[in-house]
Design a protein around this nucleic acid. Structure first.
Lengths: 175, 175
DNA sequence: TTTTCCATGTAACTCGTTACATGATTTC
DNA sequence: GAAATCATGTAACGAGTTACATGGAAAA
């Protein structure tokens, strides 16, 4: 229901059509979710069927018509419910990148260090992007700041792993 | 391919049957992935079909027969390939919990604080569990330490959010 | 003796992705 | 005139989950 919360929350601030909504989410909330266009359209349809939003077709000139979605009272109620559930709970994040770390001793330290240097470059790019992001209004800002903190930690951690690897290359098991 | 890497890496250290494998992953690597039993069996079948592992049926007494999986040279090669790819890249994590944060100003600060207190309790439980985990051998230890660092940061961050909320309740928008 | 653990699977289903299709409009 | 952007969708597919089914062994 996370995606639904996201869509409802966005629509709550302003009625939008699917394309617009998708863009907004991609820009401001990419760190929370990864919502494809078709998925957004599909969810909006479902939410309309559930009575959480209403569709209103508008057309500007000869362009393809836009379906503008607006929250209903039922949608607002659902939003409140989902928001409370989300805030009250903590869902553990899965670190897929740790799978590699778990088997780090399968490689010679030198090679592991080289690969981790590549990972660091990618991580640093994300970090820089997060720090370059413009300020957002209201509590949206929390999302950005959280991301910054998190990425800073990841950099720190990665550097520590690399240090440990390079300091004790003699101990490392080579299989 | 993360799950495949995980299974190959585990089997590489020791040939195991599905049940055993699933248990091992649940214990040592729960923070990396969330692998259901049926999914594990399914993946093992596929990996056997791909020639990465061999199955060998063994039975102890009258118990249900065990299918012990063992890495083939092709499986080892695949493992090396997947490991390198994993280590060299950084995949961004999605913070589903941030969706709630993004819409925090939809609630009165008092209520938001109460909900976040619940979230903190859940988070703290995870944190304590991570700190209580026994040490693992080799680079598996990295996984645990990373998890500890991460959860410590999350606690810190959550407390800061709560502090900010309680310090400036007058500014908060109530809709 | 009832429950839990060991050990494996199958079948239905859901969720979401991918790839494709359309067509006007703006930008290069 | 070509390419990118705006704007929406559909249909096929796939990965993974859920629920179910089996049955012996150990533990309570």
């Amino acid at each position: 229901m996370e995606r639904e919360l996201l869509l409802l929350g966005a629509l709550r601030q302003q009625a939008m059509h699917g394309y617009q909504l998708h863009e907004f989410i991609e820009r401001a909330l990419a760190s929370c979710t990864d919502l494809k266009k078709s998925t957004a359209y599909m969810l909006l349809d479902k939410m309309a069927a559930a009575g959480w939003v209403t569709q209103k077709e508008t057309r500007a000139g000869n362009r393809p018509p836009r379906r503008v979605y607006r929250l209903t009272p039922a949608g607002e109620a659902k939003f409140q419910e989902l928001l409370r559930a989300n805030l009250a709970s903590h869902t553990n994040v899965r670190f897929g990148g740790d799978i590699g770390l778990a088997f780090l001793d399968a490689l010679k330290p030198a090679e592991a260090l080289e690969l981790l240097a590549q990972r660091r470059a990618a991580l640093e790019a994300s970090f820089n992007a997060a720090n370059a992001a413009p300020a957002h209004e209201g509590s949206l800002q929390f999302v950005i700041e959280h991301q910054r903190r998190y990425l800073a930690l990841e950099l720190e951690w990665l550097d520590e792993v690399r240090t440990r690897l390079s300091q004790k290359p003699s101990r490392a098991k080579i299989r």
